[in-house]
Nucleic acid binder design. Structure first.
Lengths: 66, 66
DNA sequence: TTGAAATGTTAGGTTTACATTACATAATGT
DNA sequence: ACATTATGTAATGTAAACCTAACATTTCAA
């Protein structure tokens, strides 16, 4: 099961979903879906998000047991 | 543009494409496509590959300029 | 208190990741 | 020489990622 800290880190930087989406070239709905864990983004998008949020990809997304 | 070291690391461990695919639950064709850079896998698959190949996701897949 | 901005959410459509099947070739061992 | 295994590659199908558009609700500044 995939978990992530996108919402938490986005808040830390004070970005709106729209702003973050624009920085990584996706819509705010896509950001919302990712924050809710409703789908597993591509590694390309994950890498862009990690760069903008200044963390390692593995610290932004990780797999949990179960 | 997305780059990766899957083929190199797979060789290091002596895995065939089939064996690696089986360990991360995809077909050998999917591994072949990824090695050729023909698509950007999901972060879930990228995390599984990084785990099996014993590297950080960011050291297995990265974005290059251009 | 009003209105804009941010978020939640849903519906319908396009694109792409990934599966299945199949065939061809190269490499290896018997 | 033959069989087996690994790889390359291509066709077709499906599921999921991602888009646009829309409307409702919450939040927050004026």
């Amino acid at each position: 099961m995939l978990s992530n800290r996108v919402k938490e880190l986005r808040a830390r930087y004070g970005f709106t979903q729209s702003e973050l989406g624009k920085q990584v070239d996706v819509t705010r709905q896509t950001i919302a879906f990712i924050e809710k864990g409703e789908f597993s983004p591509s590694i390309t998008l994950a890498l862009k998000l990690a760069k903008v949020l200044k963390v390692e990809v593995g610290d932004l997304f990780w797999l949990e047991e179960e």
